[in-house]
Design a protein around this nucleic acid. Structure first.
Length: 214
DNA sequence: GGCCTGCCGCTTCTTCCTAC
DNA sequence: GTAGGAAGAAGCGGCAGGCC
């Protein structure tokens, strides 16, 4: 599934009409034909107008265009279009409260590169701004509720990059129970199975103590 | 344990399609 | 052209669930 296969961003088209369009053989925007479309003239006009605008947005890699037109639970439809530039991220903190606790590390994965920003070293407002601004799509697990608000509270940032929070697509396919259990369900193993978020806090303070010794 | 986003179910209204 | 039905949009409140 690429965004060119989707008609959901069109106003007046829901899953039922999109399904009918596919059944009529109109699997891609390029194949769209008013004569074959199983929709009325108004909807046809809306689809043609959308395709015209969306083609430009696609050429410009303007993912915000699609974010504003897709239901948030369907944002995954643009992933294949920006796969190599999509920015996966996760934060570690000293606790759950963004006002009382601080971010210790922020890790990013983009293309085949992993970058970790560390507090009191490479983790700065500017480095975060650069990472998020250069991505067409950011991806996290529960980041909409935890990671992004935490970053925005701790730094003067307003992260408006289109954000795919995997928690909700996972839930739609009955993958629930937290990141760890989902990883197990889909066959992803960790090098450090026994380490959880609380351990991350403990390890951070240990790291700080050892750094102070130097 | 604090936070809060997004989902869900429901209702109402509008728009559009289809058959006659 | 009209009527009935289908589908989508919008708005609302309540709440589940996951983050470290």
């Amino acid at each position: 599934m690429r965004i060119q296969n989707s008609y959901l961003p069109v106003s007046g088209v829901g899953e039922t009409r999109e399904q009918r369009l596919w059944e009529a053989g109109l699997y891609e925007w390029a194949e769209f034909s008013p004569k074959r479309a199983p929709v009325g003239p108004k909807t046809t006009e809306a689809i043609e107008s959308f395709i015209s605008e969306a083609s430009v947005a696609l050429d410009d890699a303007d993912t915000k265009f699609f974010q504003s037109r897709l239901p948030s639970s369907e944002l995954w439809r643009i992933y294949e279009n920006v796969r190599s530039e999509a920015l996966f991220f996760d934060i570690e903190t000293t606790g759950l409260d963004a006002r009382r606790n601080t971010i210790t590390t922020v890790s990013f994965y983009q293309g085949n590169d992993t970058t970790t920003l560390v507090r009191d070293d490479t983790l700065t407002e500017e480095s975060l701004r650069t990472m998020f601004a250069n991505a067409p799509l950011i991806i996290s697990f529960n980041g909409a509720q935890f990671d992004v608000p935490f970053i925005e509270t701790n730094y003067s940032l307003d992260i408006d990059t289109p954000h795919l929070d995997l928690r909700y697509p996972c839930k739609q396919v009955n993958l629930t129970g937290g990141l760890k259990s989902i990883e197990q369900a889909v066959g992803i193993s960790r090098d450090l199975e026994a380490v959880d978020g609380r351990d991350a806090v403990r390890l951070w303070y240990q790291y700080e103590r050892e750094n102070d010794d130097f």
